[in-house]
Design a protein around this nucleic acid. Structure first.
Lengths: 345, 345
DNA sequence: TTGTATGCGTTATCAC
DNA sequence: GTGATAACGCATACAA
């Protein structure tokens, strides 16, 4: 039989010290990395004792004693979304690389939840709070959120925004403009000139940059009426599909391509176009942005802009742990990847 | 200008109490849900003070004082995977519903990382540890992991396995056998009889159940040589694709269908089949398991077994917070969804 | 009902 | 180098 019925007390540093026959501070010094040195004989005894007893440091206690934890808090709008889950994975990996644990919370795009969560996360005493992705269902009480984050920052915490810049804090993002611009140029060069551009219904700077980058790219290639075909349906697969379905046959017929500011929307558009009887890519090309991995099985493979998540995550974590604010913006690379959905036109 | 240069001290309960002119325990009783009652006048003053000062409870301190936190720890093998991110999202949502915050860690399928992470998570003093998904790259030191989890359990923590049962702890899972069996029957009835079954190269009970369920279903429909076509390639998109590519033309030609134990593998197989020049579904049908949402854009839409994540997550969280072990297994529903990849044969 | 005193597990500041 | 001792912020048993 294992163990008594009632829950036992967890093994504490005190238990280890007693077992090893040293003082508790000494045990602390050997087990939880202090700068101070400890005699080798003691060191061995303590380590052995900890192993035998199955000691694990009580993190809340450490956090309280140290006044800071080895945790970073990550707030994402969605997690069951290939883009955000990839982002979260990469941020966690980078955090892990510098010895930080990650605590994730999900806002579900609800601004009030976001505020609540920031409050809770602040209570965790994390080293930093990273907010990734925005776009709300309900109108945000921005001032309250900013206040909350300022309080956190005032007590030594760091705030980093990823792929959003709607709040007055440090932000890291992809080079949305350049990526979209380059995509537009490459597409224009292979014959796509009449392009429908689908932006985001909710105003998001990153998405606006993608729209503008794409238009600039077209203009550089001599497309004069580029801006005539920009629309902002609801920011989702569904929104893009429905918008496409709302177009007339004549409008659809004259288009060479649909560019949407995310792969998700591009696929919504693609679904809508098919429902309208158009063949992709024979009748019309489709392009997106993000290069979501799980779309490798979509046929035709989707032309898109690949974003360097790794670099972005690294930069985000770097800023999260670097005390001095380095305000130089170094956007993470984003570059076009032409695939089967946009053969030469 | 906002704030002085140096980091300020966070607002504590003591600050609030002093500001409101009451004792610290009284403030505690008002703000952090005690059973005790507090005079309405005091209550108002405390709440107001907390609001004005921007007080947030220091969670580590609460955890230490209470001896337990309001956190549950979730350990998943991957997060940038549509299946696991959907699972994680659902578990977080259910945890949230009962007032628990979730801390996620990712093992990356490395057994040694899993052991380390369990140790760290244990240090967080979570209410429960949920382990979801298995399948290791390296051979696990199972005993060490079990010991670690037992220690945690002995101190009052709860351990719940989700969709895995390789360890001696409570487990919740889908009804893999029934789902696959039902799928096989429905497919057999519409003419699919020569079926290639792709199981998992790494031995996972859930996957084995899917294989067996599928075979049982075929047998019930009178397919006699069902078991002749079971193979276990590497447990991934890549593994499935490569296995299909390794078949001879003759072998491929006589097949009616490929069933893989996950959608991911099914799509790998589908990619491989196409590379071999087969049309889906005209030449051969394909079916998977999991019904991953992000595959809605795959053409043809994939026949699969839908799994009820919501129910599973609810059950997992329920077990994570319910002290008495209820050992009755109630697998979460899983039922076939026939789509375009398997028209009547 | 309210306040006082104590303890949670750890780190940090000091003497030794 | 090592060991007492005082924090850290909060909850609780107990006294008032």
């Amino acid at each position: 039989m294992r163990g008594e019925p009632g829950p036992k007390r967890p093994v504490t540093l005190d238990d280890v010290a007693r077992y090893a026959g040293v003082s508790q501070p000494t045990a602390s010094r050997v087990l939880n990395g202090s700068a101070r040195k400890v005699a080798e004989s003691y060191r061995q005894r303590v380590i052995e004792a900890a192993r035998e007893l199955g000691y694990t440091p009580n993190l809340p206690a450490q956090a309280m004693a140290r006044g800071t934890s080895r945790t970073i808090a990550l707030l994402v709008s969605l997690i069951a979304d290939p883009y955000f889950s990839a982002m979260a994975a990469e941020i966690m990996k980078q955090a892990e690389a510098v010895g930080l644990h990650t605590s994730i919370a999900v806002t579900d795009r609800q601004a009030d939840r976001e505020l609540d969560l920031v409050r809770v996360l602040r209570g965790q005493q994390p080293r930093a709070i990273i907010l990734a992705g925005s776009g709300y269902i309900d109108p945000p009480d921005e001032q309250a959120l900013v206040d909350e984050l300022h309080r956190y920052q005032d007590t030594g915490g760091r705030v980093v925004l990823v792929s959003r810049s709607d709040l007055p804090f440090e932000t890291v993002d992809f080079d949305n403009h350049a990526g979209a611009r380059q995509l537009a140029r490459e597409l224009a060069r292979i014959g796509y000139r009449k392009c429908l551009v689908l932006g985001s219904g909710t105003p998001l700077l990153s998405m606006q940059q993608r729209v503008e980058g794409f238009l600039d790219g077209l203009i550089e290639e001599g497309v004069t009426d580029a801006a005539d075909h920009v629309h902002h349906p609801e920011f989702s697969w569904k929104g893009a599909r429905e918008f496409v379905l709302s177009l007339t046959d004549d409008q659809l017929r004259e288009l060479h391509l649909v560019f949407a500011v995310t792969d998700d929307m591009a696929l919504g558009a693609l679904a809508g176009l098919r429902e309208r009887g158009l063949r992709i890519p024979e009748d019309i090309g489709v392009a997106g942005f993000d290069d979501i991995t799980t779309l490798r099985d979509v046929v035709p493979t989707l032309t898109t802009v690949h974003v360097d998540l790794h670099t972005l995550a690294k930069e985000a974590v770097h800023r999260a742990i670097t005390p001095d604010r380095d305000l130089t913006r170094r956007p993470a690379p984003a570059y076009p990847v032409l695939r089967a959905s946009t053969p030469p036109h």
